[in-house]
């Protein structure tokens, strides 16, 4: 490394971006083939997935190594903060699109469908609905598992903040226990969510209700899964003695992400389960 910590760290030429492009090409190309019953699709997709895992492991290890060897100055740290903030904003917009679809279906298009009475006479706009041609077998009530799940995720936000306090006070025990608790709560949430899916009387094919329900909760669950994996990596890093009271943006980035996933759940609970 010729750069001193005084200057902004500029990384050496790297193969990772090209590997990322390869991984995405294989994953998406394979997926497109698999969706169209082309035999080669699945193996290509799996190969892409393996390259992707290799990529994440390799690229993040490199960044972690750089971080430990203190080549990042304060300005680089600020870049990471800006970058993570805008990344979360892009995720907010991703969910915004699905919430918009839910709002439109419930409050606009179903009513028009009922008002028109041309194609499907007698159709009444209610919510939940699977539309005029399908039958909806039940829906999710908010005050059972979903309420417990809300409690679990909110608590996990608190335990994560408690872990952060531990880190800032240099209390490694508190940090570790907080992280373990947070991950446990996240896994508990996912288990209950899986149970809810297994018990559900309707599927993603159950009209607009099933579609919006599974799309929104499914993508949220995927984000919780990613968050839990990231927290586990942070836990392993803590066990290896990474981070100190002042230098721990890796921890904070994951914490931001976790809180974001938390907030999305609150909106889900209100608009998908409750109202």
């Amino acid at each position: 490394m010729r750069q001193s910590t005084k200057n902004y760290y500029l990384p050496a030429p790297s193969f990772w971006p090209a590997i990322a492009a390869t991984a995405l090409f294989l994953m998406f190309g394979g997926f497109a083939m698999a969706l169209n019953q082309i035999g080669l699709g699945k193996p290509v997709m799996i190969a892409g997935g393996l390259v992707f895992v290799y990529l994440l492991r390799g690229w993040f290890s490199e960044v972690i190594k750089e971080s430990i060897s203190k080549v990042y100055n304060t300005q680089v740290d600020h870049s990471f903060r800006w970058g993570m903030g805008w990344f979360i904003f892009s995720e907010v917009m991703f969910f915004f699109g699905f919430f918009g679809a839910l709002f439109y279906a419930r409050n606009v298009s179903l009513h028009w469908l009922a008002d028109a009475q041309l194609l499907w006479p007698g159709f009444v706009a209610t919510w939940p609905s699977a539309g005029p041609k399908l039958v909806l077998e039940g829906h999710m009530a908010p005050w059972g598992l979903p309420a417990i799940n809300t409690l679990l995720l909110l608590t996990s936000g608190a335990t994560l903040t408690w872990a952060h306090w531990g880190l800032m006070k240099n209390n490694r025990n508190q940090l570790t226990i907080g992280l373990v608790l947070t991950i446990a709560l996240g896994v508990a949430f996912l288990t209950l969510q899986a149970h809810e899916y297994a018990e559900a009387a309707f599927t993603i094919k159950s009209g607009i209700y099933g579609a919006t329900f599974y799309m929104l909760t499914g993508f949220h669950g995927l984000h919780v899964t990613m968050g839990a994996i990231m927290l586990t990596i942070i836990l392993l890093r803590v066990r290896s003695g990474h981070f100190d009271a002042h230098n721990h943006f890796g921890f904070e980035a994951v914490a931001w992400y976790w809180h974001f996933v938390d907030v999305v759940w609150l909106f889900l609970f209100i608009f998908v389960y409750w109202l």
């Binding site: 539309g131 607009i208 799309m215």
Partner: peptide
């Protein structure tokens, strides 16, 4: 990305986002 994802699930996974028969539009 969201719109395209809904398109993919409508095409292959039986959702009804864009199909009025299932309450979509």
């Amino acid at each position: 990305a969201g719109a395209l994802t809904m398109m993919i699930t409508d095409r292959h996974f039986g959702t009804h986002f864009f199909n009025a028969a299932g309450g979509g539009d």
